[in-house]
């Protein structure tokens, strides 16, 4: 409000002031929109697989300072910092298991190196960071394309299964009979969602041209069951659902609420066009 006097005194100055303010604001808005768009575009990489211990993608992006210390800590050159133009948020670490998978180091040097907590030791340890347990790693989830998996053709492959560091736990074999030959079984690899670490050793090993088993981020790979039902046979399933339960959302059939609906004159529901 201190500008009031100036306005009175100098009409030109006042106009210039406002016009500069407006131009500045416009520039900021325009710049912000373009800039924000650029950032959003880069952020829009739902397929990025983050290092062991990474928080959920949104939390991760809010914490990763893009220093590459995890990248340098990895003895296998598994991790890469996204370069500009890679389609992933520039400077953030990720892995491409088909090229180099994560070997699940027991000392998890990548997570340990992270200065910001974007890779969180609590997620890959028991008792909150004190005892590392790399098997808790959840880089993503291995997903199978049975259409292109030659084990599903009946061939003896299961290379992915044998490559899995958690063999018989994260990937198991499902044995079914091959009706066509009548004397061979199919040994079908099956990923156990709750155990798979997403290390991608299976993806790397897969012997078809484009891997028929591949790691996807959980956000992409997983469905979600609502909070309105709890498995009766599973003592701890209730932990899965949120405390409010899931009874709230309903389809509003009546449209106007029960009373209005009941008082509406038309009898007999018909599906009408308008």
């Amino acid at each position: 409000m201190s500008g009031a006097k100036d306005m009175d005194r100098n009409e030109t100055g006042r106009r210039e002031f406002f016009s500069r303010l407006a131009r500045g604001a416009a520039a900021a808005v325009a710049g912000g929109v373009v800039w924000g768009g650029l950032v959003r575009e880069g952020q829009n990489a739902p397929l990025a697989l983050r290092p062991p211990g990474a928080l959920s993608e949104s939390e991760f992006l809010a914490k990763c300072i893009r220093c590459g210390l995890c990248v340098e800590a990895c003895p296998y050159d598994t991790l890469q910092l996204a370069g500009p133009g890679s389609g992933e948020p520039t400077g953030t670490p990720s892995l491409k298991p088909r090229e180099v998978p994560c070997y699940l180091c027991t000392d998890i040097p990548c997570t340990v190196a992270c200065p910001t907590g974007a890779l969180d030791l609590a997620l890959v340890s028991t008792d909150n960071g004190r005892t590392l347990d790399v098997n808790q790693t959840r880089i993503g989830l291995a997903v199978m394309d049975y259409h292109n998996c030659i084990a599903a053709w009946g061939l003896r492959c299961d290379a992915c299964y044998r490559a899995c560091p958690l063999i018989d736990k994260a990937i198991t074999l499902e044995h079914t009979r091959n009706e066509r030959t009548g004397r061979h079984a199919m040994l079908l690899p099956k990923v156990q969602t709750d155990v798979c670490t997403g290390c991608g050793l299976c993806e790397r090993a897969c012997i078809v041209e484009e891997a028929a088993i591949f790691v996807l981020p959980h956000e992409v790979a997983l469905g979600k069951v609502g909070d309105n039902y709890v498995r009766g046979w599973d003592e701890v399933d209730q932990q899965r659902v949120n405390p409010d339960g899931g009874a709230a959302d309903q389809v509003d059939q009546s449209g106007a609420g029960a009373l209005d609906y009941l008082n509406d004159g038309v009898l007999g529901g018909e599906v009408d066009d308008d």
């Binding site: 950032v39 880069g42 300072i65 910092l81 948020p89 400077g91």
Partner: peptide
Amino acid sequence: LGTAAFEAVSPVGMLQRGLVFGMGL
């Protein structure tokens, strides 16, 4: 946006990281 906005587009960041980790575009 919930992420370090300048870091996401910063040419300085691209250059200093690129020198160490690969320039990309």
